[in-house]
Write a protein that binds this DNA or RNA. Sequence first.
DNA 1: TAGTGGTCTAGACCACCCT
DNA 2: GGGTGGTCTAGACCACTAC
Lengths: 238, 238
Amino acid sequence: MNLINTPTPEIQSWQDVHDEFLRRIRERIWPPGEQIPNEADLAIELGCARTTINRALRTLADAGLVERRRKAGTRVSLHPVRKAIFDIPIVRQEIEQRGDRYSCSLILRKKSKPPRRIASQLKLDAGDLAAHLETLHFANDKPYLYEDRWVNLQTVPGIWEADLDSINANEWLIQNMPLSTGSINFSAENASKKDAELLGTSEGSALFIVERITWLSEQSITAVRLAYAPGYHLHTTI
Amino acid sequence: MNLINTPTPEIQSWQDVHDEFLRRIRERIWPPGEQIPNEADLAIELGCARTTINRALRTLADAGLVERRRKAGTRVSLHPVRKAIFDIPIVRQEIEQRGDRYSCSLILRKKSKPPRRIASQLKLDAGDLAAHLETLHFANDKPYLYEDRWVNLQTVPGIWEADLDSINANEWLIQNMPLSTGSINFSAENASKKDAELLGTSEGSALFIVERITWLSEQSITAVRLAYAPGYHLHTTI
DNA sequence: TAGTGGTCTAGACCACCCT
DNA sequence: GGGTGGTCTAGACCACTAC
């Protein structure tokens, strides 16, 4: 019995096919840039239906490992674009999942004229008012996140009457607005004096900043800036 | 003709089915937490094969909008976990895609004993040497990214002989190592004196930091810290 | 134990797009 | 024009798990 060249493991499911193809790519049996056999031939080789091959290759293509084009066939990517997938957590869950106690405090709630940048993000006309909500979120009573949010009152009039002491603005929006699309932006900023005071750190500390804008078809809903207390980091595997 | 209740658009493909289900979720025809009909019934309702329904619902489940369990059926997620997908760019491409000129400079290349934290990340024994490579990347001759990299010489001996003046370490690794898995971490740090000097900014500036560790099955390959010059941000839509 | 989703199969047609 | 992947279908069996 040959113990060096292990026999091909039994291939039964699309995941087995996927793993086998992944092995061929990793071990450069199919080198970067090379065209691989077409689906029909692979189906014959592996003894399964073309649909199964298709599912495996489609998954590899979703991951960026191969590139597929009709007629041109399938190639191993020369520069596989690695994708990092982050779950956007709900603050409360993020804190409670670590076993900490969540609390929050609404520190500002005002109708006012948003600064130019926010107004354009929310597609508001000059002079339009928006709801300005500032919330401080705590983990075990320690400042964790400072949330500076503007909400489009034309799209979401209900937020003004909402009882935001018993539920925070983010969760209210999740519960009361239909699913929306949006953009998200990560950056680093030095803490302003206000940031520092609220988060219990010193002015100039490097803060991890998340900015989100969400909208529903053409209507903007909310623009929010999240400033995390020092020490925050986002982690994932790829 | 009824212009208010638009007639159901022609449903032909799994994407049409997907869009229709998305509409029902958005408009709360299927409210959060509610169980939706099973695949067989939906197939009858929409007049297509169960496979097609399955594909549509599977896609919605991948996006976190519904949760599916055998026997229990499919429910609309109560707290849809939004996922943000970022492409991890190769520095050169990132810079050239903006129309800027890319260049880089290898500022350190030394075999040395890595600090404790790096050693444990690379799973090195005490006293083992690793390759320490520091690279400064420029966009239009302006400092853009400072890369501090440690490479496991037991896994990747070839990097020591590589001509890293004509190709940077990251690209050499991509071309010479099989596809690997890894972890990635985003955070914010105040620029150290060294960071600041290299990136042409002032000490204490908030820097966007990416730390990556990559490995191949059980063997570590490289641990790298990327410090981006101020102004950098990661952006995506969700 | 029975209902549900997960998957495989074989065959078919089609859209795309390289040559 | 023709080869390739993309998808649909109908039917089948299976794995999981709530009941």
